[in-house]
Amino acid sequence: MAVIGVEQLKKNIKLKIDGQPHTVTDFTFTKPGKGQAVYRCKLKNLITGNTFDRSWRSGDNVEKADLSTRQLIFSYIEDNAFVFMDGETYDQVMLSKDVVGDNAHYLIDDGEVEVLFFEDNAIDIQLPNFVIKPIHKSDPGVKGDTATNVTKPAYTDTGLELHVPIFINEGDLVKIDTRNGEYVERVNAKK
């Protein structure tokens, strides 16, 4: 991948450091009047999430990280891997549990997700902001409890726990915000 001079550093640029992809989350240019310029970056490792500071001097070079995204369709779970398919090439792509993490709760059969690749390895998945999931388990609401904003625990088909209004029943479809895991609204079944 391309090697660039540190003069080209800026916020959000992606760099390969010690073999791993990083994003520059903050960037400061400083230079004593007569001294060498110092480019100080706050960096975030895109795989581990670790953050740290690193400085470079004028004249130094850095390597850009080879990152790309692909739209993949979720197929099924096999052993400890999540199997996706590329809708264009029909290639199968296996993602490990480590990469999918808690996002597994929001996967929908045949649902599309954006997968971030570093070189040839998938490193992260980006869900749509909202997904629709069925409620598999939830106790019925207590009769007579008519106060507004009363919620009860419920579980989706993937075992995600969330709080829903008491009028939600098992088998209902609900819209969930994947960024905070919160219930948004009830959705009428299309069937």
């Binding site: 400083t30 004593p32 001294g35 060498q36 110092v38 100080r40 400085s55 001097r57």
Partner: peptide
Amino acid sequence: FEETLCFEVE
């Protein structure tokens, strides 16, 4: 020198 001057002294 530059890093120390810029981040610790200045």
